[in-house]
């Protein structure tokens, strides 16, 4: 028994582990809040498209940083923020104008983003290995400054999402009706896309750009199975996301696995169990008056 607790104590006394835990908890809670709005609008894959564009932003950041003689990668995160926000707003405008269908616009972003990133990083003097940390996350190498950035960005995203939640909900639930209420739905859809882009760059450090959407979507997929309202779905998805982030991190620490992938596999396993258990639970619920 005492050996078990020593295990925990050792893990928690490691400063790297402390930082990783703080970031995993915070990002795990914030990402599904934005994800709930994406799932509501049936844009579950938007985060993936933005993630691919963010890769071009990372490479552009490297390139500009190298040109300015800064430390390698100093501008990678700002580059990702700018590229993903621009990409998200462009895709929303293209979608709203109806000129290109949503899935074609997403496909163009996916391929353009990855190809642009891989080509530019070479120009910037990096290698494709440089990109791997961004593609799969780098939770194990967080600095204290990274933690501060993450806290600030997560607080901004959560505050904006909570302040705008009724308008975002209304625009997503029934857009023509919302417009007839005088709600500027196009503006709110763009705000939603920009928040999704910020979330992508926030979650990039935890699970990496290839898995970023999973952190936004899978907790929502789990909780919409049983929730009876939008606000409950969102609140419980934030809780599930934080728990998945923390428990995935510990499992990865003890079994020496990549933390980002472990968090996502764990969350999907929970979804599978919940989806299988749902018919049984529903039957029991309807049997008891």
């Amino acid at each position: 028994m005492s050996e078990y607790w020593e295990h925990w104590a050792r893990a928690l006394s490691d400063p790297l582990m402390q930082r990783a835990l703080a970031v995993a908890l915070l990002v795990g809670a914030a990402a599904p809040v934005i994800g709930t709005f994406l799932v509501q609008r049936r844009l579950a894959l938007l985060g993936d498209g933005i993630g691919h564009v963010a890769l071009t932003g990372v490479a552009l950041g490297w390139l500009i940083g190298a040109g300015l003689g800064l430390a390698p990668g100093a501008l990678a995160i700002p580059g990702a923020v700018v590229a993903s926000v621009v990409g998200a707003v462009v895709i929303e405008v293209v979608r709203a104008s109806g000129r290109t269908s949503g899935d074609l616009a997403l496909a163009l972003m996916f391929y353009g983003g990855i190809a642009g990133g891989a080509a530019l990083i070479k120009v910037a003097g990096g290698t494709s290995a440089t990109l791997v940390a961004y593609l799969f996350g780098s939770l194990a190498t967080l600095s204290a400054a990274d933690v501060v950035t993450t806290v600030a960005l997560a607080a901004l995203i959560l505050a904006a999402a909570l302040a705008g939640r009724w308008a975002l909900f209304a625009a997503g639930a029934d857009e023509p009706f919302a417009r007839a209420c005088g709600i500027p739905t196009r503006l709110w859809n763009v705000v939603g896309a920009a928040l999704a882009a910020l979330t992508v760059t926030l979650a990039m450090r935890v699970v990496g750009l290839l898995l970023v959407s999973a952190l936004m979507i899978v907790p929502v997929a789990i909780t919409q199975l049983g929730a009876r309202s939008f606000s409950r779905t969102m609140a419980s998805a934030a809780l599930v996301g934080a728990l998945a982030g923390a428990s995935g991190l510990f499992v990865a620490y003890w079994y020496d696995l990549p933390p980002g992938a472990t968090i996502v596999v764990l969350a999907i396993a929970v979804y599978a169990v919940a989806a299988l258990a749902k018919p049984v639970v529903d039957k029991l619920r309807s049997a008891t008056p």
């Binding site: 799932v39 049936r42 209304a170 639930a173 209420c181 709600i183 929502v220 919409q224």
Partner: peptide, 19 residues
């Protein structure tokens, strides 16, 4: 949609106007 919404939530949100 992909996320459940209660009747109450829809009727509350319907009272939004303008900006």
């Amino acid at each position: 949609s992909g996320v459940p919404a209660s009747a109450l939530e829809l009727v509350v949100a319907a009272q939004l106007t303008g900006g």
